[in-house]
Design a protein around this nucleic acid. Structure first.
Length: 434
DNA sequence: TCTGGGGTCCTAGGACCC
DNA sequence: TCTGGGGTCCTAGGACCC
């Protein structure tokens, strides 16, 4: 393995916010404490975050919101469901991450609610456990978000330690204090599908071969693992044995693709509505592209009917390249509409559409072309940046493309959304004095 | 009535080049 | 009858993550 440059003495922590979305809702609404609370995906679709009280009712992640309501109503139980409020969650996440960054040696922000921390050499704590407990208290006090922290010699083991930490009262679990025998004993209680990097397919294959626990897995033949699960599986196995194969990724790598897609709030049959949605998703995707200071060349679009319906089905996707790299929204909208004309078929009830941008490079790596001025040399990027600035200032898209539509009656549903307490002046929480 | 969205990495196989 | 071999690049598909 090429892990000779990985420090074998490193110590990693995985910090994970407990039921993050639910915790964000509770942070601004203490009434929800100890009550069954759930947060739904976009379009008020499936449950993506559940409070322990809701889990205790037998509800699981991924269940459709309407089914949950139905089920619990029959049992005479009440549940507090929320639409997802990504603006709030994103802002709460940066607050939590900032505190972690300020105290750890180094940090890799892994997702909206998770971060790996590098801990070896941390001062002035007596133990990693003591550090983690201090961090946990600090985050809870300043943001209201409860976190769990698992500590180990590799990231994969830290993930396992974190799962154990979630079940303890202290919310912290340190694998580095255990002997190898004790770790092995523990790995016998970890199901193979609970290992980071082992999903449904690998789980199935491993079980077929009599491998049920993390302990079984580390005792597999390494060559066999590589053959069956590629180098990714091999690294996972080594990491479980305590050999680090994955370092902290400190720098945010250049993004490779941007996707913007949504299900519609109702079936869409009109071409014009489909075109509006594609145009709007293009606008959103290219805005994100500019925010990352990138330009792109390839655009993909797709449309699909509802696979859960019994009616006639149609789905199609296609892609095309711009002549030149660009971050100029109209370039993409024009191309997108011409692509849609090619794949659109009348007579279907469409459920979802989307766009994807690939072939992305940083803005400053673009070379001038003989025949086309480069993005940035003309006024087009200045216009786009001005539009971005104005829209940001006004907290909403007051300048938009007519092709995005005005009524947008096909938009996704978000009927149970909480306020954006921390990012909009008009939605600040109100504290009443007695 | 109502079933999410946004990403990454690896591999195999084909096209193409010399 | 005999019909190369090696490298690179691209794409599609499959796996995973949150």
């Amino acid at each position: 393995m090429e892990n000779n440059y990985n420090n074998i003495n490193s110590v990693y922590a995985l910090m994970d916010c407990n039921q993050f979305y639910v915790s964000c809702e509770r942070a601004f609404n203490p009434f929800l404490e100890n009550k069954p609370v759930g947060v739904l995906s976009n379009n008020d679709g499936c449950l993506v975050a559940l409070s322990p009280e809701l889990k205790a009712m037998g509800i699981t992640r991924g269940m459709p919101g309407f089914k949950v309501k139905e089920m619990l109503q029959k049992q005479g139980k009440y549940v507090y469901l929320f639409s997802s409020n990504y603006e709030l969650y994103g802002d709460m996440s940066s607050r939590v991450m900032k505190i972690a960054r300020d105290t750890a040696i180094d940090i890799e922000i892994y997702s909206i609610d998770e971060a790996f921390l590098l801990l070896d050499g941390i001062q002035p704590f007596n133990s990693y456990t003591q550090y983690a407990e201090t961090l946990r208290t600090k985050i809870k006090k300043s943001t209201g978000i409860p976190v769990s922290i698992g500590i180990a010699k590799t990231k994969t083991l830290a993930k396992i330690a974190n799962k154990i930490a979630k079940k303890t009262k202290s919310g912290v679990f340190d694998l580095t204090t255990l002997s190898e025998d004790e770790i092995h004993k523990l790995l016998k209680s970890v199901k193979v599908e609970d290992i980071w990097g082992i999903g449904r397919q690998h789980n199935k294959r491993l079980r077929k071969n009599g491998i049920y626990t993390a302990y079984d897995f580390i005792n597999c033949n390494q060559e066999w693992v590589k053959k069956e699960m590629s180098i990714v599986g091999e690294k996972t196995q080594l990491e479980l044995k305590g050999i680090p194969c994955s370092e902290l990724e400190k720098e945010i790598p250049n993004p490779k693709s941007i996707v913007c897609s949504r299900s519609f709030g109702r079936p869409v049959t009109q071409y014009i509505e489909l075109a509006e949605s594609i145009s709007l998703f293009c606008t959103k995707a290219i805005k994100r592209l500019r925010k990352k200071n990138h330009v792109a060349k390839t655009l993909h679009i797709f449309i699909t009917t509802n696979p859960f319906n019994s009616g006639s089905q149609y789905a199609n996707f296609t892609q095309a390249n711009l002549i030149n790299y660009s971050a100029y929204t109209p370039d993409f909208i024009k191309l997108a509409i011409s692509l849609l004309e090619k794949i659109y078929k009348p007579g279907y009830a469409y459920k979802k559409s989307g766009v994807m941008i690939t072939n992305m490079i940083p803005e400053d790596r673009i070379y001038p072309d003989l025949f086309y001025s480069r993005y940035g040399d003309d006024n087009r990027d200045k216009v786009m940046k001005l539009v971005d600035k104005i829209n940001k200032q006004y907290d909403k898209d007051i300048i938009f493309f007519a092709s995005n539509g005005i009524k947008k009656s096909w938009s996704m549903k978000r009927e149970m959304i909480s306020s954006r307490f921390t990012t909009r002046w008009t939605e600040l929480p109100i504290v009443k004095a007695k």
